[in-house]
Amino acid sequence: MDDSTTDDPAESSDAADGPETGTDDSETSADASVSETETETEAETDAEWMEPADKPILEFLQSEDAFEPNQIDDEGIAPAKYAAYRCREMTKRGLLTKHMPGVYEVSELGERYLEGTLDPSELEADK
Rank of each mutant, 00 (worst) to 15 (best):
E42M: 07
E105L: 02
A30S: 08
G102M: 09
T6E: 07
T28C: 05
P120K: 05
E115Y: 00
E48S: 14
E59I: 00
E105H: 02
S35Y: 07
S29Q: 11
K92F: 04
E64L: 03
S33A: 14
A80L: 05
R93L: 04
I57G: 02
L95P: 00
R86L: 06
E27Y: 11
H99A: 14
L123N: 06
D46S: 10
T5L: 10
E42A: 15
P19R: 14
Y82D: 13
Y85V: 09
K127E: 15
P79I: 06
G22F: 09
E122H: 05
D2N: 09
K55Y: 02
Q62K: 07
E20H: 12
A125E: 12
A47Q: 01
E42Q: 11
A84D: 15
E75V: 06
P52I: 00
E108I: 09
A32W: 05
T28Q: 12
D119W: 01
P56I: 04
T41H: 10
A66G: 09
R112N: 06
V106Y: 03
F60Q: 04
A16F: 09
P52H: 03
G94P: 00
D74F: 09
W49I: 02
Q62S: 14
E75K: 15
S107Y: 01
S12M: 09
P101N: 14
A83H: 10
P69D: 09
L109G: 05
A10L: 13
I72P: 03
W49K: 02
S29A: 15
S26Q: 10
T97S: 08
A15L: 12
T21I: 13
L61P: 00
S33E: 14
L96K: 00
E42V: 04
R86V: 04
A66M: 03
S13G: 03
P120R: 04
D73C: 05
Q62V: 00
V103G: 08
S33C: 08
E20L: 15
T117C: 02
S26D: 09
Y104P: 04
D3Q: 10
G22Q: 15
R112Q: 12
S4T: 07
E36H: 12
A125D: 11
D65K: 08
D54F: 01
I72S: 09
E36T: 12
P56N: 08
S12N: 06
A32R: 12
D2Q: 10
I77D: 09
E36P: 00
N70S: 15
A53G: 01
A80T: 04
T39P: 01
S26W: 11
S33Y: 10
D8P: 01
T45F: 00
E89Y: 05
K92H: 09
R86M: 07
E124R: 11
E11M: 07
S33N: 10
T41F: 08
A43Y: 00
L109D: 14
D126M: 09
K81E: 15
A15T: 03
A47M: 03
T39G: 10
A47W: 00
K81L: 14
G18S: 15
Y82I: 08
T23Y: 13
Y104A: 11
S13M: 13
G116M: 03
F67I: 03
V106L: 06
G18T: 13
T23I: 14
S13T: 12
K55I: 02
L118D: 02
A125W: 07
A53M: 05
I77K: 08
S4L: 10
A47R: 00
